[in-house]
């Protein structure tokens, strides 16, 4: 599945997660956010997005608790920033894969 963003073909899987991180940029993030019902990405959103991407790069498995302990935001605020399934939504917008279990 591909979507055209600023004349770039961005690849997504069936569930709407990006499959090629090299295609990610701020415009792509804003486009995904709008689709997920977040019209504006505030500086706080960006801080969380950057942190998630760093964690993903260092191959640290992501959990909501880890976001809460990140020093960037707490769990309550994380929910306010990315309502309904914040980790899944934030991962989508950050261009990283869905946090999963083994099966």
């Amino acid at each position: 599945m591909t979507t055209l963003v600023n004349e770039k073909n961005v690849q997504f899987n069936e569930e709407g997660f990006m499959t090629d991180f090299s295609q990610w940029d701020k415009e792509v993030a804003e486009m995904i956010a709008a689709k997920e019902g977040i019209p504006v990405l505030t500086p706080k959103h960006w801080e969380v997005i950057n942190w998630l991407q760093e964690q993903h790069k260092s191959k640290n498995p992501l959990t909501i608790r880890k976001v809460g302990g990140s020093g960037i935001t707490d769990i309550k605020e994380f929910y306010a920033l990315f309502p309904n399934g914040p980790l899944k939504k934030a991962a989508k917008i950050s261009g990283i894969p869905k946090p999963v279990s083994c099966i």
Partner: peptide, 16 residues
């Protein structure tokens, strides 16, 4: 569950 499904891998979800 804190995850987005009982099974989170697409193949497992489909099959199980």
């Amino acid at each position: 569950t804190p995850l987005s499904g009982a099974f989170t891998k697409p193949f497992a979800s489909k099959k199980l």
